[in-house]
Design a protein around this nucleic acid. Structure first.
Lengths: 215, 215, 215, 215
DNA sequence: TATGAATGAGTTTTCATTCAT
DNA sequence: GATGAATGAAAACTCATTCAT
């Protein structure tokens, strides 16, 4: 969805870029309600009309900004997740991903758009389709790490992916609503405490099937 | 917030009522972005200025509507949850609650306001404080059903409550974004599949304490 | 202009009273722009509709409040001015009057309405007619103290009265615009410095007829 | 505030201009209370939103209009005052200035804003600061004409300037409140009658140092 | 006398969007 | 590509005022 803008690098292709970055920044700092064409353009040092000239509208620009950060995140997180080979490492990776997103503001940016989509039905399809790659991402790594094990049979990849994204969204919302992040931390802690149990318990009888730990 | 309006039923105390109901309806059907004073008033067959006269503002009206449905839900769900005495029944009750909320549109209504709060920082505190009773609600029933058991020690009530509300929010968002509810259903199924395992595995050695399943 | 409200003292004639007082207070503290029927009624602990029931409108109420304080001031200031028998004492009395009005907030109240009248042509006649008694007041005391003297011939009472009221208004405005009152004080000081000169020069040769300067 | 608009005369730089002029006109004719964005825009044949686009708000536009006429007046009046070399000529100049302002409506325009500032505290600082140049103006000419003389010592420039502006404001108000200008004229006449006396008496013995009265 | 509800007009303000240049 | 001006729609909100009770 992020159109390749690298090749046709016109003289002030820079403006497009600056608008996209500014869109992300304003979205994070002022919320969707504050992300007007004028606010973004001002932050980018550009003319508001360019939002329409380049992107066709404010929402389209915001989506472009989401696409840009999604691409970066995907690359980043792919590397993180790839290193996990056990359930515990996977949970660890998930936590790392969450914290990274939080620190970089990606999370806030995404969250604002999800919230906006709820608020404004016209945006829903756009946001919905943009969550697909992430579901596939989780599916892939769950399958890779847990696939074939009893746990994998108990919890099929697709459903775990849904649950994870769902949870991720919920945590995001919470962290936005609650200034203090103690709740969020408590929720993340839970995952860490449960993971070892799940591993221990569901993988105890390796006899049956190609359990990865049977090695 | 919803004062007892039953007794002193002034001629058009009905208007207040109609506005509150219309606020819920419009919120569900048009989203927060579509819930302007005019839209709500039109739907209630009232003058838009009455939104300000009676409630002081659009957001206050929407919060009043939330409070009204929250009160109803709390009563309803309290009865549902009170019947659960095992973890499985608790999960069952949670599912029932969720489906009820979904069908009655309570869920969408709540969800719109949560999303609006993300979008509009000024609303955050209001929404945040309104989630407290629900956290207490979950805490109470978890403690009642699981408290004292090994599972209860592994998963303390407060954290479970956070996690549940978090999850509920995430599921809500998903169900709003995805017109088709297959994902949501898949996610709920997961809970049902995990619950028995959790029960089996964590409560197998009842020796210690008043485990409920030792019966 | 202040209708006699003492005789028909109905049970809650008190409300009328409270509205009048509240009108003065709100006018002083919030300015004419903030003196809405609702604001005044709230401050009086009364229903806004009573503003219309008792006075016919907001402006009429504000004028009634002005009339009330004018009556008080007239009584008060009459006593002050009556004691002056020389030009210097008259200037002294004027200063006392000004300071009293300032401290009691009468000045601010009057000033707000004058300003409102400028702003809102419909009020002009009302305010204009209410300055008449004060012009007569000044005329009277000037004539009494200075009349017949050379100074009195140089400066006829009516014109001095106009000048004084004019000046009074100007000083009011200034004192409202400038938070710090140093300018106002400087202006009042001028009067004190000029008065003795005027007295000295114009009254030195009382017997002598046409010219005070002995020309 | 009025940027040099002469050179880069964009197609409808004229609109800004027309708005400023219309603001002055409406202010004079309808009073501040009638000077809404819509009223001004209508009078200028422009879209009300342009008031905000170009000036940021109604008050800012009105202040811009004041600045424009202030600039014109300063130029005009500077020339008038510069010719005065005696006290009488100075009083004469002041009268000319006053009459010019009255005829051109500058006076009414200024007066409306002063009144509005009284009514609306937020405007006070803006108006207050805009009176500074005029105080300096008076100070300068008083010093130039009377400075060093006994009268100059009796009446220091700064205080005279305060008094003059104060008086000017008061007279303005009066002239606005009283449709008929006989009072205003009477007040101006006073000044003419007093001036020669003051001149005569205070400047008679130029060689003599401190006190004109030979004390 | 007093009240609460209701109304309609009007205000400021902001926005997405378009267009001529 | 970029700009500044312009537009029309819509929003939130306030107010004076009226009316039935």
């Amino acid at each position: 969805m992020a159109r390749d803008t690298a090749r046709t690098q016109r003289p002030s292709e820079g403006t497009r870029d600056r608008l996209i970055d500014a869109a992300g920044t304003v979205l994070r700092e002022e919320g969707y309600a504050g992300a007007s064409a004028r606010a973004i353009a001002t932050s980018a040092g550009a003319n508001p009309a360019l939002v329409f000239y380049h992107f066709g509208g404010v929402d389209q620009l915001l989506l472009a900004a989401l696409d840009r950060s999604s691409a970066r995140r995907m690359e980043l997180h792919q590397a993180t997740a790839a290193q996990a080979t056990t359930l515990e490492e996977l949970v660890e990776a998930a936590t790392t991903i969450y914290r990274t997103d939080l620190e970089h503001g990606y999370l806030a940016q995404f969250c604002e758009l999800v919230a906006a989509a709820v608020t404004k039905p016209a945006l829903r399809a756009e946001i919905s389709s943009r969550s697909e790659p992430w579901i596939a991402f989780i599916e892939h790594h769950w399958e890779r790490v847990v696939g074939g094990s009893p746990l994998g049979r108990l919890l099929p990849a697709r459903e775990v992916a849904f649950a994870a994204v769902t949870y991720y969204l919920g945590v995001n919302l919470f962290s936005v609503l609650d200034e203090d992040s103690s709740r969020t931390d408590a929720v993340l802690d839970l995952a860490h405490r449960v993971a070892p149990r799940a591993k221990l318990l569901t993988m105890r009888f390796p006899g049956s099937g190609p359990s990865p730990e049977g090695r």
